[in-house]
Nucleic acid binder design. Structure first.
Length: 274
DNA sequence: ATTGAGACCTGTCGGC
DNA sequence: TGCCGACAGGTCTCAA
């Protein structure tokens, strides 16, 4: 599920239950996810209060009163639910509930992750930026730091397909397969063109870089709105998962195609994406 | 240095 | 109905 907008939705869901609240106890139901939990994970969290819950790219960061920060990634299948205390123990435990944060407020924050590609670590807050998971990340796509100049600079000289470049978290941090493909469709750019073609040889942005930057911001902002709005209409993608269906661009006669790029499915309209 | 392929896991879905 | 392969919204590692 989780690209940037979904992670942001999880953050907003967790925030009221966690922030300003003490973690009374942590239940670890297995020793690892993608990697082993850090040593004494549960003990180090117990008694700490979460002062802030923030997001960087697809990572969640819980700043703790203990001077440490809990760094979390949802992988492909990770999710949280906030449950009535006790609702996750007893017989109500779902399969793949791997971590339960018992909170002083009486809520439990339960982490569930069938595929276990998720990740959790505890880091000294002062050394957070030097954590390997975070230090290489590119700009936040919704921040002012991410503009056509930044995108063009990051793509200049890259021989990979444009879509692969968008999935590179050093180019822009937080896009995943769905929204990369959606943004390219909005911008009218082929996923297969070489990434460097959106920049001049000197690394300045071409018109395509401006369009792509705007499209990325638009698609992410819309997705965040949709996640948080009550009137959530499931599935409103332009191209993702729409192979053989009509292109949604007004008056475009194209039919959506699917091709595998770097092991991932790419969906695009061969008519209006150049 | 880049870039692509494979690996990590489990669940689900379509076809036979 | 049951089995089997393909595929899933992410990232890391390794070899060319």
């Amino acid at each position: 599920m989780p690209e940037l907008p979904e992670v942001e939705a999880v953050r907003r869901q967790l925030e009221p239950a966690m922030v300003g609240t003490r973690i009374t106890r942590v239940e670890l139901r297995r020793p690892d996810l993608r990697a082993p939990f850090p040593r004494r994970f549960a003990q180090r969290l117990a008694g700490a209060t979460t002062t802030q819950l923030s997001r960087r790219a697809k990572y969640l960061l819980a700043t703790l009163s203990s001077g440490e920060t809990l760094l979390m990634h949802l992988g492909m299948s990770g999710s949280f639910r906030v449950a009535e205390a006790g609702d996750s123990s007893n017989d109500n435990r779902n399969p793949h509930d791997h971590v339960v944060f018992h909170l002083a407020s009486g809520w439990d924050a339960v982490f569930n992750d069938p595929r276990r590609f998720g990740f959790m670590d505890l880091v000294r807050t002062t050394r957070l930026d030097r954590h390997p998971a975070l230090e290489g990340l590119g700009p936040e796509p919704l921040s002012a730091a991410f503009d056509a100049d930044a995108l063009a600079r990051a793509c200049a000289g890259k021989r990979t397909p444009l879509k692969s470049a968008l999935l590179d978290q050093q180019v822009v941090a937080g896009l995943g397969n769905i929204y990369a493909v959606e943004a390219l469709h909005i911008a009218g750019l082929s996923p297969h063109r070489q990434a460097s073609t959106i920049a001049t040889p000197a690394g300045a942005p071409r018109d395509s870089a401006h369009r792509l930057t705007a499209a990325i911001k638009q698609v992410l902002a819309e997705a965040i709105d949709r996640q948080t709005s009550a009137s959530y209409r499931a599935e409103r993608f332009r191209v993702y998962d729409r192979e053989s269906e009509r292109c949604r661009r007004p008056r475009c006669p194209g039919v959506i195609r699917r091709r595998t790029q770097a092991g991932r499915s790419t969906f695009y309209c061969p008519v209006c994406q150049k």
